[in-house]
Design a protein around this nucleic acid. Structure first.
Length: 566
RNA sequence: UGGGGCGUCGCCAAGCGGUAAGGCACUGGGUUUUGAUCUCAGCAUACGCAGGUUCGAAUCCUGCCGCCCCAGCCA
């Protein structure tokens, strides 16, 4: 694939697989699966699971299935089914012809449930949801048996068939596993395995069913049917493993996958729970699932993150069972590293300040050649029109220079990137005292060479006023201003920590002319500013770029320190 | 308070009885027409705490402490 793939680290799951292989288990076969529920968009946490499952399949010459865990028709839909496939593909993984739905197995699942009944290991229970909760007991008190626990096999079979036939109201009855109401593991206290959902329209099976199997029953059997060898899931399912094993053992399934749990990814300054992401979208705190501030795969893509950078990130954070809280800096470092290598350089002025080169002939246009990448000649060059009137960054000029400031000051010199050295001769202000224009002179003998007898330390970017493309630049910052918005000590709802300044839209930015035919999805480094990508909303008439991430900025840090010192 | 997990540098994370990898962050130096990149150097006498076993422990034993998960007809 790409540069990030030759340094695969090991982790405890790979170690377990190595041991299984060494012990000759599963006939040397490795089969994993990525099993999303299509009830929302995939996020960075899913990326971790995707890279783990598909990555293992690749490295062990095995297979990884994509399987939709679609057992809850109330929450799922095809929009999500399609978005998930798009995102997994975009991340760089391919499931070939192994696209499955748990709903593919509904008939088998039903038959297996009947088998459980025949073996005396499942029963139809008429208790209401409230009664079931009551009978379940608490964490410290055992539950008590349902009065329906000892129905005959025939009665159970009959009732279950009638549940399927739609004879009973939603909630009137459920099918339960018959295990142990006194188990210290709550999951083993006769868990529900089928519930009634009449009138639900399932995105895959339509109205064929009015009973739907529960996760615990469905998941292990789906894994078994598909011949999965290692079923990887997150830590909260650790308590479910005895149940996973119980179903497969009780039904004497031929294939018994090994469930292994790892900790889910926590990323600072964001939320990664589908419930909260759904709320952010539905309550309008963000534009949509693909809002560039969202930690969704779609959002990261629109923000300008590359598949390789996300894979690299997943590699770097590792896979363990300990809780973690990864800093945004790690993710950001991954894109910077990838984009530094691959993104062509361009110049863009975010906050324009007019500069007139007084000793440059009016009407003249010089075509200067500039490399697309300072370290990679193979990326070629492009032409920059140089003229008498330019724009530079407001922030690159100060009337009074702070300590260590090496940009343009009154009477001082600075290098225009890929062009000449200029000197600021005069500052023009409006009636309110605001600087509106700089009158400068240029040294014609400084193109591609240093001036005689003096050092010019600073280099700033610029664009030709007459040729500039006017564009909208969207600058993004973290969505939340608290490192753990969902677990803040102040007890406030995560929404209280939403960052009001997470999006700053700049509408009159000036870009170098070569950007006129940029295409949606393209990445660039706007020198000295950051990495940007062309937004899907972009058009030739209304250019729109998103800032993926800023460049590292040691000047900002120095300036900050000076501010704090004074 | 029942059960299941986890505790190694600011954040991740190797380590599996032989005397603390690596990445990110941070600090300082060099190169540089991006204060970018690149590059060099520094950054845990210490592995939640307390005992014990051992010539030797982050790794084994015991006891504490802290944090997370579980009482959906969600996944």
């Amino acid at each position: 694939m790409s540069a990030d793939d030759n340094s695969t680290r090991t982790n405890f799951i790979r170690n377990i697989i190595d041991e299984d292989l060494a012990a000759g288990r599963n006939g040397g076969r490795v089969a994993t699966r990525f099993p999303p529920e299509p009830n929302g968009y995939l996020h960075i946490g899913h990326a971790k699971s995707i890279c783990l499952n598909f990555g293992i399949a690749q490295d062990y010459n095995g297979t990884c299935n994509l399987r939709f865990d679609d057992t809850n028709p109330h929450k799922e839909n095809v929009e999500f089914v399609e978005a998930i496939q798009r995102d997994v593909h975009w991340l760089g993984y391919d499931w070939g012809d192994r696209l499955y739905y748990a709903s593919d197995y509904f008939e088998q699942l039903y038959e297996l449930a009947c088998e459980l009944i025949r073996r005396g290991k499942a029963y139809v229970c008429d208790l209401s949801p409230e009664q079931i909760r009551d009978y379940r007991g608490t964490l410290t008190r055992p539950g008590k048996d349902s009065p329906y626990r000892d129905r005959s096999v025939d009665e159970n079979l009959d009732l279950f068939a009638r549940m399927r036939a739609g004879e009973f109201e939603d909630g009137a009855r459920i099918l339960r596993a018959r295990i142990d109401m006194a188990s210290p593991n709550m999951n083993m206290r006769d868990p529900a395995i089928y519930r009634i959902r009449r009138g639900a329209v399932h995105h895959q099976t339509g109205e064929a069913w009015c009973i739907y199997p529960m996760y615990d029953f469905t998941h292990c059997i789906s894994d078994s049917i598909e011949g999965i060898t290692h079923s990887l899931c997150t830590l909260e399912f650790e308590d479910h493993r005895p149940l996973y094993d119980w179903f497969l053992d009780t039904l004497e399934m031929e294939c018994h996958p090994r469930q292994i749990e790892f900790s889910r990814l926590e990323l600072q300054y964001t939320v990664t729970s589908k419930r909260r992401l759904t709320e952010l979208v539905e309550e309008g705190h963000v534009e949509d699932w693909d809002d560039p501030r969202m930690p969704t795969i779609a959002g990261l893509r629109r923000r300008g993150y590359t598949p390789a950078s996300i894979r690299d990130f997943c590699e770097r954070i590792g896979v363990t069972k300990s809780e973690n809280n990864v800093e945004m800096g790690v993710l950001e470092n991954c894109v910077r590293e990838d984009l530094n290598r691959t993104a062509p350089r361009r110049m863009a002025v975010l906050h324009p300040l007019k500069v007139v080169i007084e000793n440059y002939p009016e009407g003249e246009v010089e075509e200067l050649e500039a490399p697309n990448h300072p370290q990679d000649e193979t990326m070629g060059t492009r032409r920059l029109p140089f003229t008498r009137e330019l724009y530079i960054e407001q922030d690159d000029f100060r009337e009074q220079a702070p300590r260590k400031f090496k940009r343009l000051v009154s009477g001082g010199e600075v290098r225009l990137r890929n062009a000449y050295v200029i000197r600021c001769e005069r500052v023009i202000k409006d009636s309110r005292g605001e600087i509106v224009e700089l009158r400068c002179s240029y040294d014609p003998d400084t193109l591609s060479k240093n001036p005689e007898g003096r050092k010019v330390k600073g280099v700033i970017h610029w664009v030709s006023a007459a040729h500039a493309v006017e564009a909208e630049l969207r600058l993004y910052d973290r969505l939340f201003n608290h490192p753990s918005p969902a677990a803040a000590r102040d007890g406030a709802d995560y929404r209280a920590h939403l960052n009001p300044d997470s999006l700053l839209t700049l509408t009159h930015c000036r870009l170098e002319s070569s950007l006129a035919n940029a295409q949606p999805g393209e990445h660039f480094q706007f020198e000295r500013q950051g990495y940007f990508c062309v937004d899907p909303d972009h058009s030739h008439d209304r250019p729109v770029f998103n800032r993926t991430v800023t460049l590292r900025d040691s000047w900002a840090r120095i300036e900050q320190q000076q501010k704090e010192a004074s």
